[in-house]
Design a protein around this nucleic acid. Structure first.
Length: 565
RNA sequence: GCCCGAGUAGUUCAGCGGAUAGAAUGCGUCCCUCCUAAGGACGAGGUCGUAGGUUCAAAUCCUACCUCGGGCGCCA
């Protein structure tokens, strides 16, 4: 329909001596704010200067040139400087529903691009808490991966886990010095608490850092067998618990990189950069001076020659570009690391690595508590494990209220899915570069703009479809109520929404769309009874189409639907 | 001090150059003998941080300022 409008406009404008490309017309074309203004609108303001005419006059004349409304339109009107197109509603309805029911989960999917994209996300550090904030980056990465795949790219999901570095040295030091009597426990909150204790003790007595530096060096050289084995054991505890979390979050990785693997090469690369005069020595440390790019100074090696995150990241980036031969490298990382990322990208450019320009950064802002920053260092946070327990228990209570006799297996399954929908949706509905204020009472509220509301809408449609005795898939449309048409229009917009999300690397547009879609659906079934109505066959088909699109869009968010709530 | 974000209803957010600024939540009222009330309907609630500028048109673009968050050499 849109293509046809563009064609009509192009022809009519040509008759007025205005040559516009189809893309240009498409850019101006908009969807009016209200239904009574039509389905598409073309504003004529911008032509005023060129044609030296009043915009409303131009609109009238262009409308004139289009001539009598072609078949697929009910009407084409002008209102002020706008030309408003009213599509043939029944025809649009038939087409949209037919396409969706035929293409199912591929509706809106785009052609293969042959592009290989590596997307790095989650990057949890061992020996530290995995808190609610980490769910954001993880959900975002997973969702973006799905959007990229849906739009035809080949995606490699990468996780880069911080299993070495100063934070690990601090943990080991603190355990050795103050907690050695405690048995090693594979328990997230215990592991997190040791780290918090380390930070606390170190900030109280600044001189203790020297002891940590010694441990850091020993871990770096690997000379101390006892420390090595302590590191290996505790490292595995963290990694195992992360795997459990990823499984619950229904995300997976194609490659795992570890900071530990980058250390030796980090030193080599720092030396190499020194030789190439990209880096230099300053106060004993190896640095890159990026001041002339307004990026400050980047330290690669400490003065004791141990390697920093910066150098390790250069090693990894090189590996991505050279070994994996990726077309795009996407870094989904905390916005607080913007400077680090800018320094990394600039360094890759200075190193003249081919395709260095193909690195992109998706900054992820914080999940904050109402009282302030959530931090693994201070312990001011909500642990993933604690929160997930609380939210699933809350969900179970809610389910039992509605279905007291539910089996335990079904209860567990449903509670987990609803909880996941709640938390993932709350993380994705906001743009990535905006802080989220995490309030627990809001997280446990399942009304309104929430994941459970979306699942409820889906389950509701499923239940009505199940109850209907009509099995014939054929349908006829006698007349269309406004709510039905609104729903159909919304369904037809799904492909553009996905494309928008893809172009901007932003799943929140899909989240917002899903919510609006569910909202219109809820209004629709309150206004239009389905079972035993004159329009039963059509409304069933419409519901089926709705179910499909909601499922498709939630799936792009990494959220699973439920047949029953 | 410099750099990067963000300022829209009591609160949390959408809208990011176009026609009357939208939701949710909270508050008030109504709807379960009728497809699951995790729902729907109605109402109150806004000088879109401030001041200039660009434009036929600014919440949206530019500049300055204000407020909040983040970052700025040996943490990641």
């Amino acid at each position: 329909m849109k293509e046809q409008i563009i064609k009509l406009l192009k022809q009519a404008l040509k008759e007025k001596d205005v040559e516009l490309k189809e893309e240009e017309i498409e850019k101006f074309l908009e969807i009016p704010p209200a239904l009574e203004m039509g389905d598409y609108a073309f504003p004529c303001f911008f032509l005023a200067e060129k044609l030296k005419q009043e915009p409303r006059q131009i609109a009238l004349e262009v409308r004139e040139k289009i001539g009598t409304s072609p078949l697929d339109f009910e009407d084409i009107q002008t209102k002020g400087a706008y030309i408003n197109f009213f599509v043939d509603k029944k025809e649009l309805a038939r087409q949209v529903i037919k396409d969706i029911l035929k293409q199912k989960e591929t509706f809106g999917k785009r052609k293969k691009t042959n592009k290989k994209i590596m997307i790095e996300f989650s990057q949890a550090n061992t020996h530290k808490a995995f808190h609610v904030g980490h769910i954001r980056g993880t959900s975002l990465g997973e969702s973006l991966s799905r959007v990229l795949e849906f739009c035809g790219d080949k995606v490699i999901r990468a996780n880069y886990q911080g299993d070495t570095g100063m934070h690990v040295a601090k943990w080991i030091w603190c355990y050795e010095k103050y907690h050695k009597k405690e048995k090693l426990k594979n328990d997230e909150s215990w592991i997190a608490s040791i780290y918090v204790d380390a930070v606390k003790k170190l900030s109280k007595h600044k001189t203790l850092q020297k002891e940590v530096n010694v441990i850091n060096q020993k871990l770096f050289t690997g000379e101390d067998k006892q420390l090595n084995s302590l590191w290996e054991k505790t490292r595995k505890f963290s990694l195992d618990s992360f795997e459990k979390i990823y499984k619950e979050l229904n995300t997976h990785f194609d490659v795992y990189f570890f900071e530990g693997e980058m250390e030796k090469k980090g030193v080599e690369i720092a030396d190499e950069l020194l030789k190439k005069k990209i880096a230099k020595l300053s106060e004993g440390a190896t640095i890159i001076d990026l001041k002339k790019y307004n990026l400050g100074v980047w330290v690669l090696l400490r003065k004791d020659k141990t390697v920093l995150y910066s150098a390790k990241d250069v090693v990894l980036a090189k590996k991505k570009l050279e070994e994996y031969k990726t077309d795009r490298n996407i870094y989904v990382i905390g916005a607080a690391q913007s400077l680090h990322i800018a320094q990394l990208f600039k360094t890759l450019e200075l190193m003249k690595l081919p395709k260095a320009k193909n690195c992109e950064f998706v900054p992820v802002s914080e999940v904050r508590l109402p009282t302030g920053k959530m931090s693994s260092r201070t312990g001011d946070n909500i642990l993933y494990s604690d929160f997930i327990k609380e939210i699933t228990e809350h969900t179970k209570k809610e389910i039992k209220k509605r279905e007291p006799k539910i089996s335990k297996a079904e209860l567990d399954k449903r509670a987990l899915k609803i909880s996941m929908a709640a938390i993932k949706y709350s993380m994705l509905k906001q743009g990535p570069n905006k802080n989220i204020i995490f309030k627990k009472e809001n997280a446990l509220n399942f009304q309104g703009d929430t994941g459970p509301y979306l699942l409820y809408s889906y389950a509701r449609a499923s239940s009505i479809l199940k109850k209907s005795k009509l099995k014939n898939k054929q349908f006829q449309i006698f007349n269309l109520k406004p709510k039905e048409f609104e729903l159909i229009k919304k369904l037809s917009q799904f492909p553009e929404v996905v494309l928008n999300s893809y172009k901007n690397l932003n799943p929140s547009v899909i989240a917002n769309y899903s919510y609006q879609l569910a909202q219109i659906f809820n209004e629709f079934y309150h206004a239009c009874p389905v079972i035993n109505s004159q329009q039963e066959s059509f409304r069933l088909a419409l519901m089926e189409a709705f179910r499909q699109i909601l499922k498709n869009s939630l799936s792009l968010l990494g959220i699973d639907v439920l047949e029953k709530m």
